[in-house]
Simulated scan of single mutants.
Amino acid sequence: MQPRRQKRLFAILLVIGLLTGAVAAMLYALQQNIDLFYTPSQLVDGLGKDKIKPQVGQRLRIGGMVVAGSVKRDPESLKVSFDLVDTGPLVTVIYEGILPDLFREGQGIVAQGVLQDATTIKASEVLAKHDEEYMPPEVAEALKGIKHVPPSQQQPASGSY
């Protein structure tokens, strides 16, 4: 092979290698910034037909309705915990900070944070719905026609004993 062709081949291989490295670095960086959206049911039961559940330590967003009577505040700090619900299971959100002004029980919210265990999220951010008309499309679809009845008010199934 002629020296001129060797230089061209080396230059082309170098450019391809640098582009591959740049794309790999971008994908790795984006992977750590992806926050998947879940509802409480999807978090507990799994997502999709394969019922894939998030792993402990994974960053995610969760949206649902704040269960009435579930908000617990620590009198010594800004720590707050509350339960979220959509169609069934409850998920507990733990947050340390000042909640949005529009946050209240029975309100639709979206929390961003890290999964602590199967039903607990340690939130770094809590967003409350800003008016009566708007709700994120994913939350609106998941909550369509759903009303949560607290366990204390549920009727026992007949013949279950």
Score class of each variant (00 low, 15 high):
Gly88Asn: 08
Lys144Arg: 11
Leu14Cys: 03
Gln55Arg: 13
Ser124Gly: 15
Leu115Thr: 10
Gln2Cys: 04
Thr20Ala: 07
His148Thr: 10
Ala140Leu: 06
Pro137Glu: 09
Met135Leu: 12
Asn33His: 13
Arg5Gly: 03
Glu141Thr: 05
Ala157Trp: 13
Lys147Asn: 10
Glu96Gln: 04
Gly48Asp: 09
Asp74Asn: 11
Ser152Phe: 15
Gln32Gly: 03
Asp45Ala: 08
Ala128Met: 02
Ala29Thr: 07
Gln112Phe: 00
Gly57Leu: 05
Arg8Phe: 10
Ala29Arg: 09
Ala29Trp: 06
Phe82Met: 04
Arg73Ser: 08
Ser41Ile: 05
Val80Ile: 15
Val149Thr: 14
Leu84Gln: 11
Glu132Gly: 14
Tyr134Phe: 14
Gln31Leu: 05
Thr39Arg: 04
Gly113Thr: 05
Ala128Trp: 01
Pro75Val: 06
Asp83Ile: 01
Leu13Tyr: 06
Thr20Met: 09
Thr119Cys: 01
Val56Ser: 07
Lys79Pro: 03
Ser124Leu: 05
Lys51Phe: 13
Met26Ser: 11
Ala140Val: 04
Gln112His: 14
Val93Asp: 01
Gln116Gly: 02
Glu132Cys: 00
Gly21Arg: 15
Pro136Asn: 09
Ile62Gln: 05
Val71Asn: 05
Pro3Met: 03
Leu13Ala: 01
Asp74Ser: 04
Gly106Ala: 04
Glu96Ala: 00
Gln6Ala: 05
Glu76Phe: 07
Gly69Met: 06
Glu132Asn: 11
Leu143Asn: 06
Pro40Ala: 03
Gly64Ser: 04
Pro89Thr: 01
Leu43Thr: 07
Ala25Val: 15
Gln32Lys: 08
Pro136Ile: 13
Ile12Glu: 11
Lys51Ile: 07
Phe37Arg: 09
Gln31Asp: 11
Leu84Met: 09
Val23Gln: 07
Ala22Glu: 08
Arg104Asn: 14
Gly106His: 04
Leu127Phe: 06
Pro100Leu: 03
